[in-house]
Amino acid sequence: MIITVKINGKTYKDEVAPDTVLLDYLRSHGCYSVKRGCETSNCGLCTVHMDSKPVLSCSVLAVRADGQEITTLEGLQKEAEEFGAFLADEGGEQCGFCSPGFIMNVLAMVKELKNPTDEEIKKYLEGNLCRCTGYQSQMRAVKKYLDFKQKEEQK
C-alpha cells in the first residue's frame, strides 16, 4: 500500500506493509523522539499528533496515516525548548525517555483546554507514564509554563 503522509510539514510517499504501525514508520523517517515503552497501548511514550490530536503511534497503523498530517517532537522544536526549559528547571525530565511523548501531550493539552485546573491537567496527562519523577515536578513545570503562556498572551 502506498501512502502519502505529511510528517512535520514535509510530504512523504512510501510503500508500507499493512501491519506496520505509525511508530515504526516515523522512526524509519528519522523521528527518533518517538519511543516505545510497552506493547499494550498503556505508556504514552509514543504520543504524536495526528491532525492535531494526540494519538498513540504504537496503535495507529501507518496505512491509517494516509493523507494525514503527523507531527512529532522533531517538528515542534521551538515549543519543545520552550516547555522543556520549564521541565528541565524542575529536574522533571530525569531519564528523559518519556519526555517526548509527555511533551507532545502537554502541547496538545495547551491547545485543547483553557485554564485547566490541577485535576484537569492530571486527567489529560494520565496516559503518560513516568517511573522516575513521581509526576510532581512535571506538574510544577506545566503550571509554570501555563502561567508563562498566559502572561505572554496578555502582553
Binding site: S33, A88, E93
Partner: peptide, 21 residues
C-alpha cells in the same frame, strides 16, 4: 543550588541519544 542537568535540553527536545536511536 538548583542546577539544570547538562543533558536536559537534548532530552526534552527528543534528540536521538539512547541506545535504540
Amino acid at each position: 543550588a538548583h542546577i539544570r542537568k547538562k543533558d536536559a535540553m537534548s532530552l526534552v527536545t527528543g534528540k536521538p541519544v539512547y541506545t535504540g536511536d
